[in-house]
């Protein structure tokens, strides 16, 4: 196995472990803990992006998700002064239906991925590199309209947030 394969297993394990601790942390129900583990998930996922040669996206993932979005989350948690989630009595019905639905989704997805022969067909050894220049070119050549719409979306979101966070919501 090449060094990159080891790195894949390390990052994948980290991603899944931290993701698990976001959702079902046996030690703490504190939302801050969840948020911090989500940050770790995102950072290790950026590692996976680097292994997939998506360098620009790895940087953006850390810059936007870990640097801005998650800080916003922490900010809100701290401002709202949320108490720890109480441990409830486990309602068997809810739990079983929940787990069943998750397992069903997982099963369907995995079956599609693993059984579909087209995927495991011999692909060419990948050569593509997600550098800034390559991504920028394709973004501004093929996807200019969606890009502009996206900027409009951001503007709308900004206006919406400012309106929502005014003191008296009418």
């Amino acid at each position: 196995m090449a060094a990159q394969d080891y790195l894949f297993y390390i990052f994948a394990a980290l991603t899944l472990l931290c993701g698990l601790l976001v959702v079902v942390n046996p030690f703490s129900r504190n939302p801050v803990t969840s948020a911090m583990f989500l940050v770790l998930t995102i950072v290790s996922m950026a590692g996976l992006f680097v292994l997939l040669h998506a360098f620009f996206l790895a940087a953006v993932q850390i810059l936007v998700y870990a640097g801005a979005v998650m800080v916003l989350f922490l900010f809100v948690i701290m401002l709202l002064d949320l108490k720890e989630e109480e441990r409830r009595k486990i309602r068997l019905f809810g739990l079983i239906t929940g787990l069943l639905s998750v397992l069903a989704v997982l099963g369907v997805v995995l079956k599609t991925y693993l059984v579909d022969s087209r995927l495991s067909a011999n692909l060419q050894p990948p050569t593509i590199e997600g550098g800034t220049a390559a991504l920028g070119t394709i973004l501004f050549k093929n996807y200019l309209l969606p890009f502009e719409i996206l900027s409009l979306l951001l503007l709308v979101a900004m206006v919406g947030v400012i309106l929502l966070s005014k003191k008296d919501l009418k």
């Binding site: 196995m1 090449a2 990159q4 394969d5 894949f8 297993y9 994948a12 991603t15 899944l16 993701g19 698990l20 976001v22 959702v23 079902v24 129900r29 939302p31 969840s34 948020a35 996976l48 997939l52 989350f73 809100v76 948690i77 949320l82 989630e85 409830r88 809810g94 739990l95 929940g98 787990l99 639905s101 998750v102 397992l103 989704v105 997982l106 997805v109 995995l110 991925y113 693993l114 995927l119 495991s120 692909l123």
Partner: peptide, 30 residues
Amino acid sequence: HVGLEHYLVVTALLFSLGLLGVIARRNLLV
């Protein structure tokens, strides 16, 4: 050799973890 399937298994597991969180947790932020 690590290929597409490996990554896809990770994404599937991660997706279902997220789904589990949406179903099981009670805190809006979580």
